[in-house]
């Protein structure tokens, strides 16, 4: 087991190295640059700025320098927000994305899983159709429609929740963005839970349990839930990584100081150190989330343990 984990971590490091190399060279292909401003910067000044950041060096020298710094833990500093360390940018904005993502995924689980169980339990009933229709709506309506509608309703009309902004200590600021962000995951979770539960409910051991007179609630929660959740759990890992890595749309709708905005801005301006920093962060997160999901899967599904 431990060997397995170490093995996966080793593979992860290799992935990160490849990611860094690819990103570093791909960014150079962008037709843009961090020193392009609306008002042209005179050439002699632009040349000075490039020299200041070592951008006048041959590409391989730059690559080698960045790689050496990276290994020693230095992500470099931003070219767009000059003077800001990439590490500092991530330290300031990632906790916001992480907190928002955690709240969103918890909301998604709290809404999606019970809805799925309910739908499976009352299969083909009004409850089932209602829950699944709701899920379909959640999947189909994009967050850039839901978000502004919610902000307008609760912010302007009812004046009960702020229409934008972020305060890590005040839940009123989390509710709308987290709900908007978590909605699509909630929808998927409810459908996956429903499917998983239905499959388990159709198994022989459930029939046996019923025949032995076991109560519905006990069958549902004691016998079926663990097996029925397997598809949902497999989804939660990657969804979690995606959700905490910052959503540009949500951040823009609610003016949240998260990581997504930095990433897009960096892409627009060819700010290589920030792009690489964020790509590496996402890469590590997804690698870790996948390992965690696999472990959770092992715990939920004993069959995997013997074959693994």
């Amino acid at each position: 087991m431990i060997r397995q984990i170490l093995n996966r971590l080793g593979q992860g490091l290799l992935v990160l190295f490849v990611l860094f190399t690819l990103t570093f060279f791909l960014v150079r292909l962008l037709p843009t640059g961090p020193f392009k401003t609306e008002r042209a910067i005179p050439e002699h000044i632009q040349a000075k700025m490039e020299a200041y950041y070592g951008l006048d060096q041959p590409l391989l020298v730059q690559y080698q320098r960045r790689l050496t710094n990276l290994v020693s833990g230095d992500l470099g500093s931003s070219l767009r927000l000059e003077g800001r360390e990439v590490g500092e940018i991530i330290r300031q904005s990632f906790p916001v994305s992480l907190q928002l993502g955690l709240v969103a995924i918890m909301l998604a689980i709290a809404i999606g899983v019970p809805l799925g169980i309910l739908a499976a339990w009352r299969k083909n009933s009004l409850i089932d159709y209602g829950a699944m229709a709701l899920a379909m709506v959640g999947i189909c309506i994009p967050s850039f429609v839901i978000g502004p509608l919610l902000a307008d309703q609760f912010g302007r009309r009812l004046e009960v929740l702020p229409a934008m902004g972020w305060n890590p200590f005040s839940p009123v600021y989390w509710l709308l963005p987290a709900f908007t962000l978590g909605l699509i995951s909630a929808a998927y979770l409810s459908r996956l839970t429903r499917a998983g539960m239905l499959e388990t409910l159709n198994q022989d051991f459930v029939r046996t349990a019923r025949a032995k007179g076991v109560g519905e609630a006990r069958i549902l929660f004691r016998h079926c839930l663990r097996g029925g959740l397997i598809p949902a759990v497999a989804y939660i890992g990657p969804a979690f990584a995606a959700v905490i890595s910052g959503s540009l749309v949500i951040e823009s709708i609610f003016a949240i100081p998260g990581l997504g905005t930095h990433f897009i801005k960096a892409m627009e301006t060819g700010d290589e150190p920030v792009i690489t920093g964020v790509v590496l962060l996402y890469g590590s997160l997804i690698t870790l989330a996948n390992i965690a999901t696999d472990l959770l899967g092992l715990w939920l599904n004993p069959r995997l343990r013997t074959t693994g």
Partner: peptide, 12 residues
């Protein structure tokens, strides 16, 4: 950055 968000914030 989003001017629509800004307008909503103003009205809220």
């Amino acid at each position: 950055e989003n001017p629509y968000t800004e307008a909503r914030a103003f009205l809220a």
